[in-house]
Design a binder for these strands. Structure first.
Lengths: 192, 192, 192, 192
DNA sequence: CATGAATGAGGATTCATTCAT
DNA sequence: TATGAATGAATCCTCATTCAT
């Protein structure tokens, strides 16, 4: 099919470079020139693929967020029992966060700083719908505590970010056993 | 009376301005000039109180961290039963994070970005010792799960940051009842 | 034609502006912004050609030093008799210093202040080798006093800098006759 | 006689600090605050003794220039024969420049840069009158070449500055023998 | 006379973005 | 499409000088 107008490879290289550099230095301490250099393109080329720096980060965020939720729900079956469904999703998320650490770090940084546009963050939340649906079912079936999604997320999912960051900083090394313990804590905190 | 000494008021105003501006814009998007303006001093004056921008943020972090843990453990009695002791500390922390929201936001941003020097962060961790001691006791008494401090922190304490940020963003409003639910989730996740 | 390469013209304009401004105001009283303005480029452009201000001055020094010694030794023949060889070199140097006054002023300022890096100055000294070789031969042939190169330089060459500066300051106007007198003094001071 | 309004000690300490710092860093790289610190006074105190930075350096220059010429001519007798008189003055100057190196360095820096006001420099020249008188006599008695004072100074006196700076930079160590050689070169260059 | 605090003006440098090719 | 050069606008920080005490 001839030559693609724009090279998806270059776009990917730029997104990848952005993740790595922002992870290590933060958004504002990451110059476009460095991103370009790491992606092996000219600074001017970035503007062929992205409107500006903010757009580059926004898109990077959305890319990863999609990848994250895709992975999380890839094996999810809306018909399985709540507990089983939750364990499956939780472990997929854990796998993503701990194995695909760079990406997860980036999301964590985005979610805890005024780095990306609020509207973009809102969009990202929608991807979680399958999990919210599961919880709704769980509450109805009186398997899960009758509390808000925020609370469930705060206790069941968010702690993984903390563990992931701690591991990245070398504070601890998460073994299979730790993951199992973490899952237990997650489930204990939300189960009825 | 007072004008021959470096004014603690000015230092405090600078720290306060730093917190507010960094919360809203992030470290690198917060110019020294704006901090100065908000604190109602000349930019040059900042350098009488702090070595440079990094030092300003480091010191701000340590200030708040100390305030945070002081508040958290102010009413702590090392001899109370583990469950009671934990509930007390947890609720103090919750009170701090939700009432003293600006400060808590700042800490969250520091803890999730490469914003402050790692050595400073390390120092900040030490302040948590009373909580770690309590957990150690809880594990010995088989009241708390025999898992690492990181795991306990991730599930018992860290979710509060998520809830606090969500509230700050207007996503939810935490009532007394929510706090109680959150406490229950926290305790459920770590209790044996 | 040419706009895809860093322009040697711009570099030269920057070097030239540096010389003029530093001559008149000294290193630290010469802002980069003024250099840029005089060279008709943006301040940021300087940093495409030079690492920083110090590098700009260092390179300017080396440029001129090379030009200076190239000119001085351009007509030098290592086989001519010592006296004749010296007279030739001396007069070339005199010509350079008095006609190419701006450059010579710059060198003088560099050599009498802590303005350029010592390592750069050291490099500059090496260019004088042909003159030192001549003197070595002169000493061997007992035409020149058996004293150190420093002494010979101090008396035979350096006075030209003083005369050049004095002329630049308008204290005197050096005619052909003065040059001849100066040459005589130079030779008298070092000949055996 | 009671308390002097201003302490001459403080003024001297300031002048001394100025010399040392300007020698090592240059005029513009020497902040008033550092001068104050080295002189062990407050920055504000400098302004009790000097109008501003320029005035401080100007006065420092004049102080040293006076000290220099006082020393040079202290043992000078206008009636001694020219050659003897010159040797005496030359050796006093050499002694000053090589032993009182800091001061001489400062003068050299002033004389080769746009550091001090031209009017001040002019004043400093007048102090050399006894030497100029001696040369005038020497020319009349046909002991000294019939050339301008500038030329005589350039060859007879100025080389000492070069040697002094070279020694300060560690390039050479001037022994008694070197001084004698230098004197000989100086005399050879100007004698008839 | 002496000071430490305070500051406005200025300087080196960086960087997101544009433009000519 | 792709680029390297170019830049104006910012940003951190310094410093001569002043001022209240």
């Amino acid at each position: 099919m001839g030559k693609l107008q724009k090279s998806i490879d270059k776009r990917n290289a730029l997104v990848k470079a952005t993740i790595e550099l922002v992870n290590n230095n933060g958004f504002h301490a990451t110059p476009m020139s460095k991103i370009a250099k790491m992606a092996d393109v000219s600074p001017a080329t970035i503007y062929l693929y992205f409107e500006n720096k903010q757009d580059l980060v926004n898109q990077t965020y959305m890319d990863i967020k999609a990848e994250y939720t895709n992975f999380a729900f890839a094996t999810h079956n809306p018909n399985t029992p709540v507990k089983e469904g939750f364990e499956n999703i939780w472990k997929r998320i854990a796998e993503f966060k701990l194995k695909d650490c760079e990406n997860a770090m980036f999301l964590a940084q985005c979610d805890n700083t005024p780095m990306i546009d609020e509207s973009i963050r809102q969009k990202g939340i929608k991807h979680l719908q399958p999990l919210l649906d599961l919880w709704e079912r769980g509450r109805n079936e009186q398997v899960i505590k009758p509390v808000s999604d925020y609370l469930l997320y705060a206790y069941a999912i968010n702690p993984l970010s903390f563990l992931m960051i701690s591991q990245k900083r070398g504070a601890l090394q998460l073994s299979k056993k730790h993951i199992e313990e973490a899952y237990q804590a997650a489930w204990d905190s939300i189960k009825l």
